[in-house]
Amino acid sequence: MRTNTTSRIRDLEIIAARIRRNVLEICRQRGGYAAQGVALADIAACLYFDEMRPNGNGWFHDRFVLSNGHDAIMTYGALAERGSYTMDELKTYNADGTRIDQSPIEGQLGFEITAGSLGQGPSQAAGIAWAERKRGSDKRIYCLFSDGELQEGNVWEAAMFAGHQKLSNLVYIIDNNDMQASGHASDVLGVEPVPEKFEAFGFAARRINGTSTREILDAFEEARNTTDKPYAMVCDTRLFDGIDCLQEALPMAHYVSRTGADWDAGIAEITARIDFLKEAFG
């Protein structure tokens, strides 16, 4: 059992803030899914810098499946902090001819599946979890998807399968941001109550604040200690969580164009936050 020490949480919060800044630096070049990348930074920090175990070979023993391809910006921001990508290369995001796809194809570093067709990650992650367990592996499988994807039937087929198979090595991380392409999910097609739905499908489930490092770590720990069923972390977030000026200006920003945000203001705010965290806990 790991202890949620103050220093561990502080370190992850600094990493999360740096991920947020990376996301803005990347998206300001040609636009992108900045609001999601910023909001998911705490989950990314906990996942890539704490929860997933290293394989001793520069990568991870555990496996992460990104289902909503456009949230790749979160992974890019985090992998830049790991040094897996350079920021110079990541700044070609959304450029013609780049390999830094906004929604990547299977095989690119950090991306286990081709994830642009939404709702297909949970079942592929469940297949990976089933096969890893069958092979006797202790790998844990983490799959991030969005509340909007809960409107896809394939997600519930996957949940029914994972619950039936008692895939306790599987963790679903649901970005419950109440925002999809055409507006609030609660207006388009309501998906709540999300934890209760997964519980009904045989999961252990918990609703958390998706920007609380402590709550994220606690949920991951609870998932690890759940040995007889899969786990659903329902992470309440809002677009641009963690950068107040952009959240206030762009509360509905599913996609932000190059000129669609005051990038300088956002970067200034998050830079000040990084400096504050360093000083406060330094």
Partner: peptide, 14 residues
């Protein structure tokens, strides 16, 4: 849909 996508996951696990 689940048959095919779970199968794809099983393939990705070797």
């Amino acid at each position: 849909q689940n048959l095919i996508s779970v199968a794809a996951g099983i393939a990705k696990a070797g």
